[in-house]
Write a protein that binds this DNA or RNA. Structure first.
Length: 948
RNA sequence: GCGGGGGUGCCCGAGCUGGUCAAAGGGGACAGGCUUAGGACCUGUUGAUGUAGGUCUACCAGGGUUCGAAUCCCUGCUCCCGCACCA
């Protein structure tokens, strides 16, 4: 197979518009796969993603369905902005990545400094590679999400949602670079990838007319505070917020000022002047001393911490350290204050005492606040208290409640009473923007949200999901979880490509939101080139998609509407596992909100990820195989076949060079198979007319039976996207059958037996059709070369013949194979010279007993014997009971398919068996010659053997 | 932590509505055949053991249900994935 042949067929398909799908009177199937975000070259992971729908589409097309498989480009979003900037700045890492991994030609590279050009360039590349892969896409419907008509569509969608009161305004924290003045994503970072935003509670402790505002994860521990910590080696400042004065570390100002409006610096504060002074606990009203601690990180929170030594190991050990530090105690005159501190218990957990912090300190043998084990100890205790802790009865109102619940209540109470506020901080430090400056958490005001928290909307989503087919089914509960868990989603953005929010043009629509119902857009996309942009107003979409009143002047509008109604609802939506929690769940939500129930999607298939030689694939790390390279090296059909054969779509697949080689030789074998038939026949095969012939030999019928069996299994597998199983049956197992068959009939092959030619031609003709969805180019070529008419892509999918699947024939073949195996085994064990092998088929009465045993369907020996005696099956009662015991055990190990005429079969295959075991054999119909009494050993499906 | 999915023979993996499972298929290794040769193809072997087709030990570990468990139930250990404003 070479690329020239593949190109030839791709061209022919294109010239005949083979995959352009328009409404007709056939039943339709509408398949979409997540449209790609083309910011780099396609790799084999993408190859798998897009091959699955192609195989399915081709399969369904052959079954007679009108199949629509379209493709578009999701080019909205922010990543390309950063990429373009880095190209512009000639960032070496980015240039290297795009030149060597994504294989962008040198003269194109510099043009990628324009984000629009990046997506244009790569969507073009994607299109070409998809053609090279032979995908049966209807390209007339291709679009980019920045097309003006698409923007009109998205505007309609958002206005629709707003009119349904599913959009609201609010504020929202984001990772933000103050220097670039922009929100940043992971792809914009120099350092700190994967950092998340943590929510903390600031609590206002009064001191004079000012406040210290320590931040905490555990607001419930406010009842256990003994003191505050300040780091005397750190700069502190006073800031004004709306008339209140806070004391915070200088380093925390940057972050806090992005979260608290108009935070103004008033002046510096000397921490030494604060140590030893007292603050007021806003909840309990108690006075707590301010004490020095060097472990306080000035960058985190607000640079001060409240101390809960009963439950925070760090606080506990810091207090112990201080007690033993006379120098410090003397410096600030703290001796009495520290001596007076009484540690308080606020949370009770099993297996811990009054002071859990002390327990873990002892358990981990931590000696000082600088001990590295401190973090581990803290984690352990925090987790334990959160999941299993109960608020102690010392605490008013909340005593006896679970920590996790009390925490939320206490938090909201404090915020309501203006004793506290929410702040956000990064989960790890440092996080550095590509520009080199520190990233902070900023609260974005005037943000727009989709109200996924809306219970009515959730209910619609659940109903939509309930009626959908999810493959694999296990993921359905995952979707349920996400529907429940989803909160309001910030759907507006400052940067990136995309559609502007129609009612607030300062904002762009966030790119997950603009790609939720685009499947409906495909159905009518081919008409847009002939329609003025302004005509694509809300009335147009309302009429076409929702059947509202027609206020549009577009003259083809009813045709457009009919086309939408023909293709919708979507039959299958395919996408990656990683998109379950957002794209796919949003897809359900938005269909639920906008479309009528009968237009809700019907099914989803969720894909696994790709591995490369057992390791995770990653473009940015260069651990990736570019799809076009793979096609060049192996051909599209080999790549397709490997991707489909190595794992089911929802499993992770592993690209292994060695195994691809195996697939390649398998495909070559398929080509040779055709030649082999030709050779046997002596002249070319004519697939258009392979004639009819009555098969007499069991082994010929066996081959046809196996063929139908494999076809049946493969068809059933493809119906539910099990590409691997389908190939397992149709490629590997069927090939094994053919090998077995040609081996069995090799004598007859050399005599050019016409039955064999007919069997092999039939196998070939069916086989080529089964493989056509997987390796369409090879199959077209073979089809044409061997006399097929038209495209194989247009051929009818073969239907299996249940009546030709014959279990008894399969069993007979098994008997022969097992017999040969057993003889060879015995020969090996006894290791002696011998002249002849005698074979004794199973006697009739044993078959009868077997049948009785089978009907009882339990290894109930007593019942088997009783019933057999009743029917008088055997004179020799002793022999009967011996056999009954044996068959009771045996029946559970073999499948009963009825009585088989072993004598005939054995006589027919006598020469073959004799040949295989390399010795003369004799088939006995009775036991007149049986010197060692071996004939008794015979049981159904297992003739007795005597080696003389 | 929350949610989801796993742990099978040298490797990858199927099986997991209990019996047809010493466990499919592929890869690797080994032997034989075909061949000048073979990385091509075919046949066979690839848990142990056995002078008659058998027996024993096996599907993370431990316990249980059953006439019978890789498959069902419980416990423990362990691995992977997602947890958001990012496509």
């Amino acid at each position: 197979m070479n690329r020239a042949i593949e190109k030839k067929w791709q061209k022919k398909w294109q010239e005949t518009n083979l995959f352009q799908a328009d409404p007709d009177n056939r039943e339709k199937i509408f398949v979409t796969v997540a449209y790609p975000y083309p910011s780099g070259a396609m790799h084999i992971g993408h190859g798998r993603t897009y091959t699955v729908p192609d195989v399915y589409s081709r399969f369904k097309r052959m079954q007679g369905y009108n199949v629509l498989f379209p493709m578009g480009w999701h080019v909205t979003g922010a990543p390309v902005i950063g990429i373009a900037k880095r190209i512009e700045e000639k960032n070496p890492w980015t240039l290297e990545l795009y030149e060597n991994v994504h294989k962008v030609p040198k003269d194109e590279l510099h043009k990628l400094s324009d984000p629009e050009y990046i997506v244009k360039y790569f969507s073009g590349e994607y299109h070409n590679v998809m053609d090279d892969m032979g995908y049966s896409i209807d390209w007339r419907r291709e679009f980019r999400t920045t097309d003006e008509s698409y923007k009109k569509f998205v505007e309609w969608q958002l206005r629709k949602l707003k009119s349904m009161n599913l959009v609201k305004k609010g504020k929202h924290p984001v990772k933000y670079c103050p220097k670039c003045n922009n929100p940043v994503g992971d792809h914009d970072l120099l350092e700190g990838e994967g950092a998340s935003i943590n929510e903390l509670t600031l609590i206002k402790f009064g001191i004079w007319d000012k406040f210290l505002i320590p931040a905490t994860f555990r607001p419930e521990t406010i009842y256990g505070v003994t003191n505050l910590w300040l780091n005397p080696n750190v700069k502190y400042i006073e800031v004004d917020s709306d008339g209140e004065t806070y004391i915070i570390s200088e380093k925390s100002y940057l972050n806090l000022s992005n979260q608290i409006k108009d935070l103004k610096i008033i002046g510096e504060v000397d921490p030494n002047g604060l140590i030893g002074k007292f603050v007021t606990n806003p909840i309990t009203g108690e006075k707590h001393p301010i004490l020095p601690a060097s472990f306080i990180d000035p960058e985190y929170g607000s640079g001060s911490v409240f101390s809960v030594p009963g439950h925070a190991p760090a606080d506990y050990i810091a207090l112990e350290d201080l007690k033993n530090n006379e120098e410090l105690l003397n410096k600030y005159n703290l001796e009495d204050i520290v001596a007076n501190i009484k540690i308080i218990n606020v949370v009770i957990i099993k297996r811990y005492g009054e002071l859990p912090a002390q327990d873990v300190i002892e358990k981990f043998a931590i000696k000082s606040q600088y001990d590295p084990k401190l973090e581990e100890a803290t984690n352990e205790l925090y987790k334990a208290e959160h999941s299993k802790g109960i608020i102690s009865n010392n605490v008013p109102y909340y005593g006896g409640e679970k920590v996790a619940i009390a925490r939320e209540k206490i938090k909201s109470k404090m915020i309501n009473d203006d004793h506290g506020a929410i702040m956000y901080d990064l989960s790890q430090y440092p996080v550095i923007c590509r520009c080199g400056s520190k990233v902070v958490v900023k609260i974005m005001e005037d943000q727009w949200f989709l109200r996924y928290s809306d219970e009515d909307w959730k209910e619609k989503a659940r109903e939509c999901l309930f009626n959908e087919n999810i493959i694999p089914n296990e993921l359905k509960s995952n979707f349920e979880y996400y529907i429940d868990w989803l909160e309001d989603w910030a759907c507006s953005r400052r940067i990136g490509l995309g559609t502007k929010l129609p009612w607030d043009r300062r904002w762009l629509i966030e790119p997950l939101t603009d790609s939720t119902i685009y499947m409906s857009y495909y159905t009518i996309a081919k008409y847009f080139k002939d329609i003025e942009i302004d005509e694509l107003n809300d009335d147009f979409f309302d009429y076409v998609f929702l059947g509202k009143d027609n206020n549009s002047n577009i003259h083809d509008i009813d045709k457009i509407k009919d086309e939408f109604n023909y293709w919708y609802p979507l039959d299958w939506r395919l996408s990656g596992k990683d998109l379950v929690g957002n794209h796919l769940t949003f897809h359900i939500f938005h269909h639920g909100a906008i479309f009528e129930k009968n237009d809700w999607p019907k099914g989803m298939v969720v894909f696994g990820m790709g591995l490369l030689e057992g390791r995770k694939m990653s473009s940015s790390k260069g651990n990736v195989v570019i799809l076009s390279d793979a096609i060049d090296e192996y051909s599209a059909d080999v790549v397709r076949l490997f991707l489909m054969a190595s794992a089911e779509p929802w499993q992770d697949f592993d690209w292994r060079k060695n195994e691809i080689k195996g697939i390649k030789t398998r495909l070559e074998w398929f080509f040779e198979f055709a030649d082999k038939i030709k050779q046997i026949k002596g002249h070319p095969i004519n697939l258009d007319n392979i004639g009819k012939i009555k098969l007499k030999k069991e082994i010929d019928k066996w081959m046809i039976s196996q063929l139908n069996l494999r076809l049946k299994d493969a068809t059933a597998a493809l119906e539910v996207f099990q590409t691997r199983k389908a190939l397992q049956d149709s490629l590997f197992l069927l090939k094994k059958d053919i090998d077995h068959y040609t081996y069995r009939v090799r004598e007859r092959i050399s005599k050019k037996d016409e039955h064999i030619i007919h069997v092999l031609s039939t196998v070939f003709k069916t086989w080529i059709k089964i493989l056509a969805p997987f390796t369409p180019h090879s199959c077209e070529e073979l089809w044409e070369v061997h006399g097929g008419k038209g495209f194989i892509s247009n051929e009818k999918w073969p239907t299996y013949r249940e009546d030709l699947i014959n279990e008894k024939i399969a069993k007979s073949e098994e008997i022969i194979a097992n017999l040969i195996k057993d003889i060879l085994q015995i020969k090996k064990i006894i290791n002696k010279d011998f002249n002849r092998i005698h074979i004794y088929p199973c006697e009739n009465w044993k078959w009868d007993v077997y049948k009785i045993a089978y009907e009882i369907f339990k290894p109930d020996i007593g019942q088997i014997i009783a019933k057999s005696i009743k029917k008088n099956l055997c004179e020799d009662k002793k022999e009967l009971s011996r056999f009954a015991k044996k068959i009771a055990k045996e029946m559970m190990k073999t499948k009963y398919v009825g009585k088989i005429d072993e004598i005939t079969i054995l006589n027919n295959e006598k020469d073959f068996i004799s040949n295989e075991v390399g010795c003369e054999i004799m088939i006995h119909e009775d036991n007149s010659f049986d010197p060692e009494n071996k004939s008794k050993q015979a049981i159904p499906y297992k003739p007795a053997i005597y080696i003389e």
